[in-house]
C-alpha cells in the first residue's frame, strides 16, 4: 500500500536472501555475461553476478530499482536492437536473451553462445518458468548454491505469506494497471506469474476474460461490475497513474462501482510483470503488504 511498508517488506526479503549471497562463491573469475533481457539481468544480480552490459539500462533502473544495477554496467541500446558493435567489443562469454528475442539468436550467436530465458510463454506456469530460469542461470554462471538459496528463501516467504493470506480473504482480487484514458485497464490473468502467485497465496483472481499471450487483458471499466464484490489493486506508476485516477474521479460509473464505493480499491507499489524471480518476490511482498494482516482485513471487510 504505502511506500514505507513496501520498503520494510523488501528489506525483510533482502535479509532473508543475504545469507545466501554472503556465502563464498567458487574461487573463479566472475563470468563475463551480457543480457538483452531484463528478467535474466535481475536474476543475475540476485545471484551476485554483475553483467557487463544490459539493454535499456535507463528504463531498467527506473522500473527495477532493486537490486540496483551498478553504474559500471554498459547500456547495450534498445532491447529490440542491442548494439552489436558494442556487444562484440565487450567480448562476453555468454549472452542471455528472452524468448521473444529469439530472432536475435543468429546474430548474437556470432559473438558468444546465446541462452534463451523464458518467463512468459503463453502456455501458463510463468512462476515455474521464473524458478527454472533462476536455476538455469545459476548453473550457467556457477552459482548453483546461491540459486538454490534464493529459491529456498522465496519458498519460505511464499509459505509464510500463504499462511497469512490463505482462507482469510473471502473476496476475489483484480490486479492490474489503469489506462490513462480512464475507461480501460490492463488486468493480469492466466499466463502471467502474477496470476500463478495469487493462486499460490490462496487468492482468487477476479479476471474471467481470456488473456493475451503475455498474460494480461485490456478490459473496459464497466466490466469490473462483472465481479461486484472484488478487490482491485492497481500499480502506482507515478504521473501516468495520477492522470488515470483524475480521469476516473470524474466518472460516475467508476464512483458507483461497489468496489470503489465500499473502498476496496488500492494503489500498490509497481513491479515489472515480465520480470524474473526477483520481480516475483517483490510482487509477493507487495501483495502480502496490501492483503495480509490488518490492511487485508479492512479491504475484505
Amino acid at each position: 500500500m504505502d511506500r514505507r511498508r513496501f520498503l520494510a517488506g523488501s528489506a525483510l526479503c533482502c535479509a532473508t536472501l543475504s545469507p545466501a549471497l554472503s556465502r563464498p562463491a567458487r574461487a573463479a573469475a566472475p563470468p563475463r555475461i551480457a543480457s538483452t533481457d531484463w528478467a535474466a539481468a535481475e536474476s543475475l544480480l540476485a545471484l551476485g553476478v554483475v553483467p557487463l552490459g544490459v539493454a535499456e539500462t535507463a528504463t531498467y533502473r527506473q522500473w527495477l530499482p532493486d537490486p540496483a544495477l551498478p553504474a559500471e554496467v554498459d547500456d547495450l541500446g534498445s532491447r529490440a536492437e542491442p548494439n552489436l558493435e558494442l556487444l562484440a567489443g565487450l567480448a562476453p562469454e555468454r549472452i542471455f536473451v528472452s524468448n521473444w528475442q529469439t530472432g536475435l539468436v543468429p546474430l548474437l550467436g556470432r559473438i558468444a553462445p546465446v541462452q534463451t530465458v523464458t518467463i512468459i510463454d503463453g502456455r501458463g506456469d510463468a512462476l515455474g518458468n521464473a524458478r527454472a530460469a533462476l536455476t538455469q542461470i545459476g548453473e550457467t554462471t556457477g552459482r548453483q548454491l546461491q540459486a538454490q538459496a534464493c529459491l529456498d528463501a522465496f519458498d519460505a516467504d511464499l509459505a509464510r505469506s500463504g499462511d497469512r493470506l490463505a482462507g482469510r480473504l473471502s473476496r476475489p482480487v483484480y490486479v492490474g494497471v489503469l489506462h490513462e484514458n480512464g475507461t480501460q485497464l490492463f488486468l493480469y490473468g492466466p499466463g502471467s506469474w502474477v496470476h500463478d502467485l495469487m493462486l499460490r497465496l490462496g487468492l482468487r483472481n477476479a479476471l474471467k476474460r481470456p488473456t493475451s499471450a503475455f498474460g494480461n487483458a485490456l478490459v473496459d471499466i464497466a466490466e469490473l461490475a462483472d465481479s461486484p464484490d472484488a478487490i482491485l489493486l492497481y500499480l502506482d506508476q507515478g504521473a501516468r497513474t495520477r492522470r488515470a485516477e483524475r480521469a476516473l474521479a470524474g466518472s460516475s460509473l467508476w464512483r458507483m462501482l461497489p468496489m470503489v464505493r465500499e473502498g476496496r480499491v488500492r494503489a500498490i507499489p509497481p513491479f515489472y510483470a515480465l520480470g524474473g524471480l526477483p520481480s516475483v518476490l517483490r510482487t509477493l511482498t507487495v501483495l502480502d503488504a496490501a492483503l495480509g494482516g490488518e490492511a487485508g482485513r479492512r479491504l475484505d471487510g
Binding site: W63, S78, A80, T183, Q184, D220, I221, A247
Partner: peptide, 25 residues
C-alpha cells in the same frame, strides 16, 4: 516509439481507435 517503447503502449491503444466511453464527457 522505438526509443521509448514502454511508455507508449497507451498511445498504441488510442491510435487504433477505441469508442469505449466512460460517462457523457
Amino acid at each position: 516509439a522505438v526509443l521509448n517503447h514502454e511508455n507508449l503502449t497507451a498511445l498504441f491503444v488510442w491510435q487504433s481507435g477505441t469508442l469505449a466511453q466512460n460517462g457523457w464527457g
